[in-house]
Design a protein around this nucleic acid. Structure first.
Lengths: 362, 362
DNA sequence: GCTCTTTTTGAATCGTTAC
DNA sequence: AGTAACGATTCAAAAAGAG
């Protein structure tokens, strides 16, 4: 077999293309396979605008068994081209990631971490039917339990302001200037991943000069970041338009650009403390009676963190404002509870939680 | 089969115990099954015979297959006792959650969300070989794709300070006073879950009076929180010491009883008011001119409670939708009428009627 | 050029009841 | 059973528009 020719896009099916590559030849694989979303009808926002869901042909499978066969096939091909010291990353959502995770384990990949990409700006759940689906999952595996692999611990620690990088990464979606557009101004690809995500993946698990393979190349984010970080890359993509756009995009990147220019650290976790968390933490119990400093008003705490007074229900702020006839009210300082016979403002509890959180959350 | 006897711990194997319960009898299942995949220690077949160390590959295969059989068995038993309108929660880490997730899907459970528990104080990775494993995953499933299920959207939104609860939950580990200890001062159970986690699970997915089953009861956190939140509980535990500690722990909890504190039914549950009843009650007169907030559209009220605009006749919703060219419209909030020179939404009148109805109930 | 407001949008398994 | 009507429902970020 000929030696590996890198820094190019291979047009075609990813299994066939990988099988045409030399075995044990790439250092890292990053894969963003179809999620098999199975979306039904249309979805509208409360303002009646239509949500542009993923309905592309490449995301449609006959059934779960067909998706499992597809997953097994491409992971098998990926395993062959991956060096014994290499690692593979796969990203997915709850629709597919449990199939992928099981398949990886069945193929004797060894799970090193599962990483949660916390989206700082996810799409809300418009109908109020579930929790806002605000994250995706990345699986990071070595080829075997006892395999040696690359993990740039110190680079990750530095990227995280001196404390160990955790398994949850807070990063925004790929939007704005970063998102590739058609000439008509629409998004070119329905699921373009943010460069910040690939930055962490590649920086964590490869060395300069390594080869990064992406079998579902799409708009080529993997190639763009790999090139900027001084790595070689190889993309496989079956859609000609995507392949063309990716090639052009990567050509515009300067190789080995100062990583600081690309550096896109996640936002710090906000120290916002919902009032409800005091209940979850057992610092306050449902039924606790709250009152203002002058003891002119009282209200009781409900299990969900709302307050109930004679005629009013709502947040600590809303109820405080309504009872006073004021336009607004800071419930944290307005409301007090009784502790050993003395009135204590709620804010004391918030400060307690903040102090605990500040200890190690990054 | 005898009716379900709740608020007790059943000592024994969870599959046998669940099979002895009536089918379709519990509202929510919370399960924290063993994760102990490949953590060393002895290997057992399902019949509890020990596996002799043979070839590595064979061992590994047998181990994972055994875990899969175990998972399949208890999930099958769980499915039988769960009501068709019930939901199941399973918590796990990357060691087992991909096996569990696949098994749930294979058994036709329908994944509603995967939830990430972000630990605010995780154990660091001491050897610097991986990312700090700072989260665990909860899977939340209904019994079938089209099953109705309980999700207390408004309670969750209230608990999160007025914005939708997301799929990532930041909560501390179970430590300090909360952690049950042996007489010697050691932790009683290796994986006691924080009450705050169960608080959110139970508040989100059940109603007061519902039955919560935990087939891996351990120290009884599920029962303790269920009781405090006015739910019934049922625990299955095979370790006598854990069962005893759990029973004692729950006995100390004060049961939540006040529905006003425990229940937030939300707006969706409010009684329906036909628009025509506003006319019957004389709150609105036939011929009243309605308009939207931007005064782009107008319509007149007819005696039968339908609207008439230039080209359109129909309900307040139909006419609003048609005039806007929208797929749907809430006529109650869309349409306004003039009162003392100011625009007032129809919804104000509906609230008035609802208040009167509530008054008469007392 | 600058600030403030409005609009747009993102891998979405997104309803319930009465007839 | 299927169909039609009712009417509930969104957050963050960035672009685009307005002044």
């Amino acid at each position: 077999m000929s030696p590996l020719e890198t820094d190019r896009v291979i047009l075609g099916d990813c299994v066939e293309a990988m099988n045409a590559l030399p075995a044990n030849s790439v250092d890292v694989i990053f894969a963003d396979p179809p999620y098999n979303l199975c979306l039904g009808g249309e979805l509208h926002r409360p303002d009646n605008s239509r949500v542009d869901g993923v309905d592309d042909a490449w995301d449609r499978f006959d059934d779960r068994a067909a998706y499992d066969r597809f997953t097994h096939a491409w992971l098998t091909a990926a395993r062959r081209v991956l060096k014994d010291t290499g690692t593979i990353w796969v990203i997915g959502s709850y629709h597919n990631i449990y199939r992928v995770g099981s398949a990886l384990q069945d193929l004797d990949f060894w799970l090193l971490n599962d990483i949660v990409w916390r989206k700082s700006n996810p799409m809300p759940n418009f109908r109020g039917t579930r929790f806002t689906n605000a994250h995706e999952t990345l699986l990071w595996c070595s080829k075997a339990k006892d395999a040696r692999y690359t993990f740039n611990y110190d680079a990750m620690k530095a990227l995280n302001d001196g404390t160990q990088m955790r398994s949850d990464w807070t990063l925004p979606l790929c939007t704005g200037q970063e998102r590739l557009k058609t000439e008509g101004g629409d998004k070119l690809h329905p699921t373009q991943k943010p460069a910040g995500l690939l930055y962490r993946v590649i920086l964590a698990s490869s060395q300069p000069g390594d080869v990064i393979l992406d079998p579902f190349f799409g708009t080529g984010t993997t190639g763009a970041v790999a090139k900027a970080l001084g790595r070689h890359w190889l993309g496989i993509e079956q859609d000609q338009d995507y392949a063309k756009a990716a090639t052009a995009r990567i050509a515009r990147i300067e190789a080995g650009t100062d990583p600081a220019l690309l550096h896109n650290p996640g936002r710090k976790a906000e120290p916002r403390i919902p009032f409800g968390s005091l209940l979850e933490r057992g610092l306050l119990k449902p039924g606790t009676v709250l009152f203002d400093a002058q003891r002119r008003h009282t209200a009781r705490v409900r299990a969900d963190g709302s307050l109930i007074a004679a005629d009013v229900k709502g947040s600590i702020h809303q109820v405080g404002a309504t009872l006073q006839g004021a336009p607004s009210c800071n419930g944290w300082t307005f409301w007090h509870f009784e502790l050993k016979g003395a009135p204590v403002p709620l804010d004391v509890l918030r400060q307690k939680v903040r102090a605990e959180l500040a200890e190690r959350m990054n």
